[in-house]
Structures are given as structure tokens and as C-alpha cells.
Amino acid sequence: MQSEEMTMHMTAVVTAAEEGGFNAFNPETGTGSQGDTLEDAIANLREAVELYLEEFPMKVGAPPVVTSFEIPVHA
């Protein structure tokens, strides 16, 4: 019988950095990282969150609900 590895669904908020590249933030842990590409930023964030969770374990919960909304722009 094979044991299944448990996974946690985490949130990544990624924004373009003014100086180029991307900033990535995980709100569940408060962990942030960056990368030259979107893929690099997420990979670096994944590593940072894994290191964080080694020190500060969290219980596996329901996947987060992620949404967005719009507001009017005032010129």
C-alpha cells in the first residue's frame, strides 16, 4: 500500500516589480520573495514558504478562496 503525500494549498499574490521582475507574497505565512520571471518568483516563494513551515508548522486546511474586485479610477 502506497502512502499519499499530503499537500497544502497556499496563496501566491504576484505583482510586477517597478525595477523589473516580480514580487510574490504568501498571505497565510506573511512570506515574500521575488524573481526575474513569474515562474522564478513563484518557485522562490514556494521555497521560502516551505522553509517557514519547517519552523512554524500549520495545520492542513481547506484550500483558500481567491478572488479580485474592481474599483473606479479617479483621474
Rank of each mutant, 00 (worst) to 15 (best):
M1A: 06
M6D: 10
M8G: 02
T67R: 11
V13K: 12
A62P: 02
S68H: 15
Q34K: 05
A24D: 01
D36W: 07
P63H: 06
D40H: 05
V49F: 00
A75T: 11
I71W: 08
E4L: 03
M8V: 02
S3C: 06
G30K: 05
N26L: 10
M58E: 11
L53M: 05
P57G: 02
R46Y: 07
L53D: 01
E28D: 05
N23H: 14
K59Q: 14
Y52F: 12
Q2D: 06
P64S: 04
D40E: 15
L45P: 00
A48N: 01
F56W: 10
H74V: 13
A12V: 07
V13Y: 13
A43G: 09
T7H: 14
E47W: 10
Q34W: 06
V60D: 12
E28Q: 11
D36R: 13
E39A: 10
M58V: 07
E39D: 10
P64T: 02
V60E: 15
L53S: 01
P57W: 06
E47G: 07
H74K: 15
F56K: 14
A48P: 04
A48L: 05
T37G: 06
V60Q: 15
N26C: 15
E28F: 01
V60A: 11
A43K: 12
T7S: 13
E54T: 13
P64D: 04
E70V: 10
V13E: 11
G32K: 05
E28I: 05
G61H: 02
A48I: 09
E39T: 06
E39S: 06
P57N: 04
P64V: 01
H74L: 13
M1E: 03
V60C: 06
A17G: 03
E47V: 13
E5A: 14
M10Y: 12
G61P: 01
G32I: 11
M1T: 02
N26Y: 07
A41Y: 01
M8L: 07
E28Y: 02
M8E: 04
S33D: 04
